[in-house]
């Protein structure tokens, strides 16, 4: 497993977006290694089967000598995209992500090729639900949002994924919540 990137946040340049009296408590980056889990494995198998079927169809269509076989390229590319994307996309996204926790907000910054830079901030309130997954590396989720899919939308968890010092960040967030409650 690659070491999480602790030197990365200095490059993100999000300091101008802090409130005048806002203090940075923690900065870090996620582990960017490729992770195999149930979801990625099933997508990988589905994508390979889809691409394989398209490949067989293309070979059989090409035997007729017409240019019909080229239409299999659409399905073949889709299959390869599903297989490769499910495996590489999450790691690629994490590789271009940086995290910051201040005394009132959590920041997630991304700088993806073509898409460009994005900076999203999530206020941490006393009623913010924290979901801590104490694995190695750990993940800490603090927001849920909806992402668009082919069949409508699905709810996804948002947070600091695969960070090395997860317990410390969790304790810092609990501290922010206690301060928010305190009179």
């Amino acid at each position: 497993m690659k070491e999480p990137r602790h030197d990365a946040p200095a490059k993100t340049g999000w300091e101008p977006y802090l409130d005048p009296d806002e203090k940075v408590l923690w900065q870090g980056g996620p582990d960017a290694s490729v992770v195999l889990n149930a979801g990625s494995i099933s997508a990988l198998l589905f994508g390979l089967a889809f691409a394989g079927f398209a490949l067989i169809w293309m070979i059989m269509a090409a035997m007729d000598g017409e240019f019909f076989w080229m239409f299999g390229l659409i399905h073949f590319s889709a299959g390869v995209g599903i297989a490769g994307g499910s495996l590489l996309w999450p790691a690629w996204r994490r590789r271009h992500s940086w995290y910051t926790l201040t005394d009132r907000r959590a920041f997630i910054a991304t700088d993806m090729p073509v898409v460009g830079r994005k900076l999203k901030s999530y206020p941490i309130a006393s009623d913010t639900v924290l979901e801590f997954e104490n694995n190695t590396p750990a993940s800490l989720f603090f927001h849920r949002e909806y992402r668009r899919t082919k069949n409508g939308t699905r709810e996804v968890r948002v947070g600091f994924e695969r960070i090395q010092d997860g317990k410390r960040v969790y304790d810092l967030m609990r501290g922010i919540q206690r301060q928010a409650v305190a009179p």
Binding site: G116, R117, K118, L119, K120, Y122, A125, T128
Partner: peptide, 10 residues
């Protein structure tokens, strides 16, 4: 919203 995320994109 008080706790609404703010998403700055270019």
């Amino acid at each position: 919203g008080l706790t609404a995320p703010i998403d700055l994109q270019n």
